[in-house]
């Protein structure tokens, strides 16, 4: 027979279990003198006593409260500054627009640009020389000693031989091309590259795979 289960003196207190002095002892649970107040624990005078609220405790609480407010304010300011302090980077969209513009200049509406082709149905060599003018592109900046912040490259591959390009058109600053191969954590400090490829039919015979690579530098204007 287990003695002293759920008695008024305590809860679940058969002898030997949880009856150490000071821990979960029946005396002092929810009594007017305090909560869980065996001698020595949680019995400072003045807390939740019928006489009123302890003012010293309140002032102490206010100091902690304002300290928390200051921490929150500092946190919010830091977060806002880090968000709005970053530059607005549009190079991804810009490189896509450049790539699309080059692609449309070469092949649009299911047909090659007639300026690109000769009478025999092949590609004209002089198209490469005036490519920018014919496609309404201006990659140069009106500042001295400043290289173009753009680069694009178009490669034509015959369907029969996809390993070797039959024609290559490139314009702009080729130094940006090496940034495309780098995969590092600080990649935003490098140029932004965009690749696209599509098939184009020349007359009824040849099908070309055309690969377009477009790169936008402009690192200073788009990063911190």
């Amino acid at each position: 027979m287990i003695k002293k289960i759920n008695t008024l003196k305590g809860i679940n207190t058969p002898k030997g279990i949880n009856t150490l002095k000071g821990i979960n002892t029946p005396k002092g649970i929810n009594t007017l003198k305090g909560i869980n107040t065996p001698k020595g624990i949680n019995t400072p005078k003045g807390i939740n006593t019928p006489k009123g609220i302890n003012k010293k405790g309140d002032k102490l609480l206010s100091i902690y409260w304002f300290a928390i407010l200051v921490i929150v304010a500092v946190g919010v300011v830091l977060m806002v500054n880090s968000f709005y302090g970053k530059n607005y980077d549009v190079r991804k969209q810009e490189s896509e627009i450049l790539g699309q513009k080059v692609a449309d200049c070469i092949y649009f509406g299911g047909e090659f640009n007639p300026l690109l082709l000769n009478n025999q149905g092949g590609f004209r060599e002089d198209f490469k020389d005036n490519f920018l003018e014919k496609c309404s592109l201006n990659l140069t900046i009106n500042e001295e000693f400043k290289r173009p912040p753009y680069y694009f490259e178009v490669e034509f591959f015959l369907e029969e031989d996809l390993r070797k390009s039959s024609l290559l058109i490139s314009e702009g600053n080729k130094n940006w091309k090496s940034d495309c191969d780098v995969s590092v954590s600080g990649k935003s400090k490098l140029a932004t590259c965009f690749n696209q490829e599509f098939f184009a039919k020349l007359n009824s015979d040849s099908v070309y795979l055309i690969k377009v690579l477009s790169i936008v530098g402009k690192v200073e204007e788009n990063t911190n």
């Binding site: 709005y84 530059n87 607005y88 549009v90 969209q93 810009e94 627009i97 450049l98 513009k101 204007e221």
Partner: peptide, 16 residues
């Protein structure tokens, strides 16, 4: 912030 955002957005509009 507004100068930066709008100059870039308008440049992209012109590019397109």
């Amino acid at each position: 912030l507004l100068e930066d955002a709008y100059s870039k957005n308008i440049a992209l509009l012109i590019d397109s």
